[in-house]
Design a protein around this nucleic acid. Structure first.
Lengths: 218, 218
DNA sequence: CCGCATCCGTTTCGATACTG
DNA sequence: CAGTATCGAAACGGATGCGG
């Protein structure tokens, strides 16, 4: 059963926390920032959240208009969760919280790292040449495909297969994150098999080369 | 005893929530945004938080370097909690969360409203004339004094007595909030005794007149 | 297999009482 | 005033079940 406690405080901050302040809520929202996800995708991305809590949070967030459950078109019988307009308005706040979080102490315990987390970081810190050519990279992380498009000085990331990728890269979030910190490792991780690259490798190198602020993993 | 659970997720967002994601943590930070507060001030501002949880949060936030316990100078035997540099960096995030929160559904249950909440809203939405004269208002809310200084198009708010107030206003947070929504009520609330004004009333009227975005209480 | 629901031990929270 | 102690209620975390 969903949580129904409230701070009973008229302040907007408290009202926001009534909606997105329960455990895991903002991480669910993080996972949806790059596009709709199924229940099982969320479970994979947030393996430390138990399924009942995840189901509770999704119900509550849907009830509060932050996200929305949508049936996929007939072929697929499943449904996905996607942010509403209201939910998308949390994006700058969640990203700012992340920037603050990377500055506080690193955790000592072993951690997970979701594909979305790394891709959000990539999108936020890559600064492609505004004059540079458009390029399309396909990222396959944990058996799910993502489209990373570089154009006009911006990086666009979305879930799903690209139509005409210049290059395809298959790895896991941790390795990709290591690559963002140090693109020089590309040859090493390719040769040890933790990354597979197919296509125009130079497009990938160009993208990696534009990532700023290398100090911080997220 | 303080909580010690973690999301065990390397993402900066999750790491931030490990620090400020526990219940009441961000509201404690809200209360400290305008300056140091004693334990009893925080209790008064967050009456729905029980004292043991408040003590736990303060210990955890201090341990994580978000705030700091400081002994007051000799005359006063008590101590105060104040944000560290790291804690102050949360200010734009917390305020943005508040702006989001006022746009989501209003609560149905009766609520509290702290002085800090209303003063943060005042500071954020007042747009005094950049060419206008400096004025100093003294606000007394729940028997605590605040200094609200208007100068160079900005409003500065801090806890404590002003040196030379142009005007002094005594009321409660709810009534002040109502005044921010509709300054026209000033005469009414003064005559019914819920607000007491002393000094140059026009300085107060000028301040109230510059509050934008009247739709939203916080 | 997916999308949860149920069960159950543990942790946290909330309310109140109590102490230096 | 500034917390601590106690205790029942709620939420969480982990495992397992189950219908579609």
């Amino acid at each position: 059963m969903p949580t129904s406690r409230s701070y009973r405080d008229a302040c907007g901050i408290a009202r926001a926390l009534d909606v997105v302040g329960e455990r895991w809520a903002l991480l669910v929202i993080r996972e949806l920032l790059l596009g709709p996800q199924r229940f099982s995708d969320l479970r994979l991305a947030l393996p430390n959240a138990s399924s009942n809590v995840l189901a509770d949070r999704l119900r509550e967030l849907e009830g509060n208009g932050v996200l929305h459950r949508r049936k996929l078109s007939p072929p697929a019988a499943s449904s996905v969760y996607e942010l509403t307009e209201s939910g998308r308005e949390l994006e700058p706040i969640v990203l700012a919280l992340g920037e603050w979080g990377v500055r506080v102490a690193l955790p000592t315990t072993p951690t997970t790292l979701s594909a979305t987390s790394v891709l959000l970081f990539l999108r936020a810190s890559a600064r492609p040449d505004p004059e540079g050519a458009t390029s399309v990279c396909r990222f396959e992380l944990n058996d799910r495909a993502w489209t990373v498009r570089t154009e006009a000085g911006q990086v666009h990331v979305q879930a799903g297969e690209p139509l005409e990728p210049d290059v395809s890269l298959r790895t896991d979030p941790e390795t990709l994150n290591a690559l963002l910190e140090d693109p020089g490792k590309l040859d090493v991780v390719v040769s040890d098999g933790s990354v597979t690259v197919a296509g125009d490798c130079s497009a990938l190198r160009r993208l990696l080369a534009t990532v700023e602020d290398r100090a911080s993993a997220r």
